[in-house]
């Protein structure tokens, strides 16, 4: 069933795009492609144009990428927690008055809608909107990352909290614990590991997004990549691509180790 549906969808989509009529190798620029690939083996640390060292540019690319990613995530995380826990199932179930329960349901669904709206606009489009509205400022990039990421984090946090066992939270509440205390001691320990694992994964994504924002003129890796490519400086380009790859590899092994370690009890 799902196989049939999938195949039909793919067939229709590729016909619509005209993929069969317009085969990919027709437009292939062999010369450029070969040069581009050959340069992969010879990345350079010296600018191909000015023969200056690229070291300062590399540092700036790395620094800019990290700065925007970290600043964006540090805003997205609290906002995502707020929205995510606001949309959590457990809050309003226990209330005795139907009025409060109804109010809770409204709050819950508005938190969900807000999160959905935030994440439904791509970070590049957010950046474009902020640039048009506010002019070129670092905060355009920070907000472009923070807003959609808050929406995504909120959605996943809500799902995780809804899936977590509710018994400890309830037991604490039945022992007279305040909502804050029940949340801290009853829910947080259950979801803490998953929350931080997901937030860390999002941080990896934030680094990628920050890199791309360079295409809009922010001083991150993307800026140097676009510059090098447009000047046909393929060897320089690969230096910055390797920087991106190194960042991805470091983050992946870091998060893998973290996941392994936090599964250990304690």
């Amino acid at each position: 069933m799902i196989w049939v549906g999938g195949l039909v969808a793919v067939a229709m989509a590729s016909t619509y795009l005209g993929l069969g009529a317009d085969l990919p190798w027709r437009h292939l620029r062999w010369e450029q492609g070969r040069e581009f690939l050959a340069a992969a083996l010879h990345p350079t640390l010296v600018s191909e144009e000015t023969h200056r060292s690229l070291f300062a540019d590399l540092v700036q690319a790395l620094r800019g990428t990290v700065v925007f990613a970290v600043a964006g995530m540090s805003l997205a995380l609290p906002l995502g927690l707020l929205l995510g826990l606001g949309a959590w199932d457990g809050w309003w179930r226990e209330s005795r008055s139907p009025l409060l329960r109804g109010l809770g349901r409204i709050l819950r669904s508005s938190a969900r809608t807000l999160a959905a709206a935030l994440r439904s606009v791509h970070e590049l489009l957010w950046a474009m909107l902020w640039l048009s509205a506010w002019g070129l400022s670092p905060f355009a990039a920070v907000l472009a990352i923070a807003l959609p990421y808050a929406g995504i984090l909120a959605k996943v946090f809500t799902e995780l909290a809804d899936e977590a066992p509710r018994r400890p939270y309830q037991a604490l509440r039945e022992g007279g614990a305040s909502q804050a205390a029940a949340l801290r001691w009853g829910l947080l320990p259950q979801v803490g590991a998953d929350f931080s694992a997901y937030a860390f994964y999002r941080f990896e994504c934030a680094l990628r997004s920050a890199a791309i924002l360079g295409f809009f003129g922010f001083p991150t890796a993307g800026y140097y990549i676009s510059l090098a490519f447009e000047n046909l400086h393929y060897r320089e380009l690969w230096t910055f691509l390797y920087l991106l790859l190194a960042m991805a590899a470091v983050m992946e092994s870091w998060s893998g180790r973290l996941r392994l370690e936090s599964r250990r009890c304690g």
């Binding site: 018994r167 400890p168 037991a171 022992g175 001691w185 009853g186 320990p189 259950q190 803490g192 590991a193 009890c265 304690g266």
Partner: peptide, 9 residues
């Protein structure tokens, strides 16, 4: 069932 939270010390 104890009502203890296993993830806490």
């Amino acid at each position: 069932d104890g009502a203890l939270v296993g993830e806490l010390r």
